[in-house]
Simulated assay, not measured.
Amino acid sequence: MRVSNDTLRSAFLAALDDARRRVVETQHQVSTGLRINSPSDDPVAAARVAHLDASLARLDQYQSNADFARNQLGLEEEALSETIGNLQRIRELTLQANNSTASDGDRHIIAGEIAQHRNALLAIANTTDVDGRHLFAGYRESATPFTIATGGNVVYNGDQGQRTLQISDSRFVAVNDSGAEVFQRIPEGNGTFVLEANVANTGTGTLGSSGLMDPASWVADTYTITFLTPTSYEVRNGASALIVAGTFTPSQSVTFAGIELRIDGTPAAGDTFTARPSVQQDVFSTVDRLIAAIDSPVGSSASRALLHSSVGQRLADLDSALAHLIDARGEIGARVRALDQQEALNADFAVHLNTTLSAVRDLDYAEALSRLSQELFGLDAAQQAFARAQNLSLFRYL
């Protein structure tokens, strides 16, 4: 078969173009440090690189979410810590006010200081983050969660929402708590029942310690303890049915319906005390009732006994609020620990993904430079061969 000069020239030029292309591709790989610079370099590997890049991008977003969650939870934890500190100070002041040597003036001063702490609690409940979002408003973070109504009571303007952020493919963490959950849903007393002394009592009987001794026997109802004489009493339920009757001596415990309570001092005939089921109330109402009890004037032994009973029960409400807020603070700590654990897992996974990505996409410089040297040598040889082939013509010898 006859091979023309044009055919040889075309073949040489095609070979030269191919050699130049390989050199350019290798030089580009060396300059970028990447084996795959476009999907055409290795379609299968390119698809895997895209998947790995997407996974790393998700991890970056999860880290951003975790950083934001940690900041928000830190603000909430600080707010709850300040709230607990204020309530503990209120408790100290209450114990001072409940001392028998405290005068009406002393208690009035103490009540004024407690009122200042109550105002501080309201300010803390309306805490905002650096962007002006209220921490305890639920989803309605632009609204002031707690405001004072016309009658002086505190009302909640937020909702029950709780925002969450995703910190892994399958894990979410809450970054806030509604004000209703933190500051309002607090059980009175011991969480089961509440004791009250009748304001019309004329004796010196004072409510002491109490507790639920037999939960199985407790029937939620309002029970009235009536002293028929200073040494005898009867207990009736909300339907006025007699539950128990007995004799009484000062500091004796009265037991009925699974509960036990102690009454100190000497009640007068006709004095009554009640035990009713506990309900939920907000921390502001707890403090308001405490202030009202402390600031009540004492003009007789009966009114002093009433003061001690009332303040004692408000102390139980205060202890319930403290326990509730301590639990809420502990819940935040649990979320922060979850963030720590997930961040560690995400970091380990990111290392694995980056190692895999490097193995798939990154260039082996030793192999690439060796290949580039060979390709340059081949290109140079091809160029020399083409130059010599150009001289293979009989016309040069005519």
Rank of each mutant, 00 (worst) to 15 (best):
L95M: 09
A123S: 15
R89C: 08
A79G: 14
I110H: 07
G85T: 14
V130Q: 15
E78Y: 07
A102I: 07
R107Q: 05
D104F: 06
Y139M: 03
I110N: 04
L93D: 13
G132S: 00
I148H: 04
Q88R: 13
E77K: 12
F146K: 08
L75Q: 12
E78G: 13
Q96A: 06
A111R: 01
Q96C: 04
N71W: 01
I84S: 09
S81M: 01
N119M: 11
S103H: 10
L121M: 14
I109H: 11
I124H: 10
Q96V: 02
G132F: 09
E77T: 08
I110Y: 09
E77W: 07
D129K: 11
L122S: 05
A143L: 10
R140C: 01
I114F: 06
E92F: 03
A102C: 05
I110A: 03
G151M: 02
V155Y: 01
G151H: 03
Q72G: 01
I114Y: 09
Q72I: 00
L95H: 05
A102L: 00
A79I: 04
N126V: 14
A123P: 08
T101C: 00
E77V: 02
L80Y: 05
S142R: 11
A120K: 15
R118F: 12
Q88T: 10
A125L: 07
L93Y: 09
L95N: 08
A97I: 02
R140G: 01
D129G: 13
V155L: 00
T128P: 09
T127A: 13
N86L: 07
A111K: 02
G152V: 03
A123D: 15
D106N: 13
G105E: 13
R118W: 09
L135C: 08
T101G: 00
L75F: 13
I148M: 05
Q72A: 04
A102V: 06
E113N: 10
A111V: 01
G152Y: 05
S100I: 09
I148G: 02
F146A: 05
A137G: 15
L135G: 08
L121R: 12
E76Q: 14
L122H: 07
G105D: 15
N126C: 12
